[in-house]
Design a protein around this nucleic acid. Sequence first.
DNA 1: TGATAATTTGACCGGTTGGTAAACATTACA
DNA 2: TGTAATGTTTACCAACCGGTCAAATTATCA
Lengths: 217, 217
Amino acid sequence: MVLPRAAKTQRRTRIQEEKEERILEAALEVFSAHGFRGATVDQIADVAGMSKPNLLYYFRTKEAMHRALIDRVLDTWLDPLRAFDAEGNPVAEIRSYIRRKLEMARDFPRESRLFANEVLQGAPHIEDELKGPLKELVDEKAEVIRAWTKAGKIAKCDPYHLIFAIWSTTQHYADFDVQVRAVLGQGNSGEGRFEDAARFLERLFVDGLQVSEQPIS
Amino acid sequence: MVLPRAAKTQRRTRIQEEKEERILEAALEVFSAHGFRGATVDQIADVAGMSKPNLLYYFRTKEAMHRALIDRVLDTWLDPLRAFDAEGNPVAEIRSYIRRKLEMARDFPRESRLFANEVLQGAPHIEDELKGPLKELVDEKAEVIRAWTKAGKIAKCDPYHLIFAIWSTTQHYADFDVQVRAVLGQGNSGEGRFEDAARFLERLFVDGLQVSEQPIS
DNA sequence: TGATAATTTGACCGGTTGGTAAACATTACA
DNA sequence: TGTAATGTTTACCAACCGGTCAAATTATCA
């Protein structure tokens, strides 16, 4: 038998689990830093601490590695949006969505850059995911937001562009990290910038969305 | 004589002007779509409609092309921020800055993606520009905003994160265009999305920044 | 027009790329 | 323990990469 990914036994070997883990970790490191085309298999093998043919024994092509990585990361990445609760307090929900997204930008910047690289270059490998699962989830949550605006719970606004605005402002701190650091300079580029950003963004979105006649406590 | 870029006469030939123009246009197309590493000289030559050695006659290396492109585009790119006027009406200034940035995202998405690709991958070629001219300009304008907040003309907020928020929300429509289109779907992805975005963003920032005690007409 | 400089081309080079073949080593398990 | 499946390595390949070179072509202008 030569094909580990199509083994006749469904169960995966301990070695397979470990190695695939190490490979995907290395792949995340390299793909997120250089994009798909810019990344090389040798580089990933090097970071994973194994030979290139050995790596290609587990993932037969560069594309297969990229796909496996996308599949693994996409779910986690959309969790904060899924947590958006139609029954909750609208302002509190938006506030905690912003906080969660900002935490992810801080704690998982590579995952953010992985997608940013991909989308920026025309999403040639994840077009289906964007038009399928992503769109469906956003449509669902946009409907929740629209219901809130219609009920007068938050200011009237386009729910899609609200979601885009939250995505872009929060992910900015992961995707454009070097620019943020460069502009803030040596002094202010400690981890405190995420707290400053949280304060600013919560205030921006909450004040911008509250219905002025009846601000929510 | 073999080196056109170091010609003894200062004046550039008509042919030089034309060809360098065509090359930079092609380079913008390719670099913005694939990033520096992902782009190939053959590809740029192909888009420019000339042979690779011919292209390398005008720009001796891939890096030289990239640098020339960056230099040419950076100035234009920062124009909207430079137009920020300390003497103007704060809310009007911010509103028109958002509008201008959004127009650039619509009309010059490749320029936006060129920088996005570069910054996303750690800005290896434009680190100096970020820490130098960019930082200085932002520092200057941040001071203007801080003066406005101190004078009570707009709500108190961190000026740097305000600028980041405007950058990220507006450039999102250029850099993440395919995602925006995918989420909005066939129907809503006409050019109308920029007008919707403008409405949303102006409202978000203006309402979020006005001092609630004395809203500006 | 003729000579000189500027431009363009095809052939080519060494290094890197993604990926393969097959021999070798290790593990799992009857 | 033996053996078959699994895992690893060395050597290698064809395609592609950025870039060079010398020869051929075209533009410039005295």
